[in-house]
């Protein structure tokens, strides 16, 4: 889910940027540094929406760089175990399928797809119920539940399931239009 959250970061600034537009430089550098990054704790930092405060700078011994503690508001995307969200299917194979919800990748194993859905090979590999009424293929929209997350330094990867009540392909026509 997306959150609006306040984070803090110590920014190092080169002395050549000191001057009237120091603050602008600081903010521009902050955006460049943190937007698009991902940490296990806070998730993906999507966009900075505002600067809360810029603390007093501290000159580093030896280098002349100055460190400013900056508090900023940002939009983050953080998936949680147990969360239910909607995602777009990006790839289907016999092991299961991959889906994307914003920046995060979710894998749904074939063990976590309802038993009545069978894998069909072909041009458009897909999972289909025996009566053919429900089909999961590339670009389908599915509602799934996250049951596990794996976090490494720069990415969060999730395992999901659609084997539960009210999960699976989104039938609501309003949602797909």
């Amino acid at each position: 889910m997306f959150f609006h959250i306040v984070l803090e970061r110590n920014m190092q600034l080169h002395p050549r940027h000191f001057g009237r537009d120091l603050r602008d430089k600081l903010v521009a550098k902050l955006m460049k540094d943190v937007e698009g990054t991902c940490s296990g704790r806070h998730g993906f930092i999507v966009a900075i929406t505002g600067i809360e405060s810029v603390g007093k700078g501290l000159i580093r011994d030896g280098t002349g760089f100055v460190t400013f503690p900056v508090k900023y508001q940002c939009v983050v995307f953080r998936p949680f175990k147990g969360e239910i969200l909607e995602a777009v299917v990006t790839m289907v194979n016999k092991m299961g399928f991959f889906a994307e919800a914003g920046p995060v990748q979710i894998f749904v194993s074939n063990h976590l797809i309802p038993d009545d859905m069978e894998f069909q090979t072909g041009d458009m590999p897909n999972y289909t119920t025996s009566d053919g009424s429900v089909k999961i293929q590339k670009d389908s929209e599915v509602r799934l539940k996250i049951i596990g997350t794996r976090v490494d330094a720069t990415e969060i990867f999730c395992i999901g399931t659609i084997k539960d009540d009210f999960l699976g392909v989104i039938s609501d026509p309003g949602a797909t239009s």
Binding site: F2, E35, C38, A101, P103
Partner: peptide
């Protein structure tokens, strides 16, 4: 960033 782009596409869709 790619994260921004993907998020924008996602939220527009959903």
């Amino acid at each position: 960033s790619q994260v921004f782009e993907k998020s924008l596409q996602y939220v527009k869709r959903f």
